[in-house]
């Protein structure tokens, strides 16, 4: 979420910008007022693909409140922490080197010709 950066290079946060906090993955539905789903785009939210072709967003609490205020039914699916990707998923330098060495094993390199 762009509006929740906690990167060290971020400049000071002016008033009106939501504080860092939780984000939510949620699906958006027309609700009792039958709000047009196409207008969700007007809110400039982080929309992510939905397996059923519906409207799925990753938003903060203020965005959730705005969606409800506009008449949408919002179903929060889970919280999405502001945290780096699991370090266990990131290759170590040794693993990356070994992968390449394994793949090209036996092929003469320029330096060996």
């Amino acid at each position: 979420m762009a509006r929740q950066s906690k990167d060290a290079d971020a400049v000071g946060r002016p008033s009106g910008v939501p504080p860092e906090g939780e984000r939510f993955e949620a699906t958006v539905h027309p609700g009792e007022r039958e709000a047009a789903l196409a207008r969700v785009a007007d809110l400039d939210l982080d929309r992510v693909p939905d397996p059923q072709g519906g409207v799925r967003v990753v938003v903060n609490a203020d965005d959730l409140a705005e969606l409800v205020r506009r008449g949408y039914e919002v179903r929060v699916v889970r919280t999405v922490p502001i945290a780096p990707v699991d370090p266990a998923l990131v290759a170590s330098d040794e693993e990356a080197e070994r992968w390449l060495e394994d793949r090209i094993a036996g092929i003469p390199r320029e330096e060996e010709r």
Binding site: M1, S5, K6, D7, D9, I82, A83, P84, V85
Partner: peptide
């Protein structure tokens, strides 16, 4: 993404 926010999309 690898150091701060795994859901970051844009450039910086």
């Amino acid at each position: 993404v690898m150091t701060v926010d795994g859901m970051w999309r844009k450039n910086r």
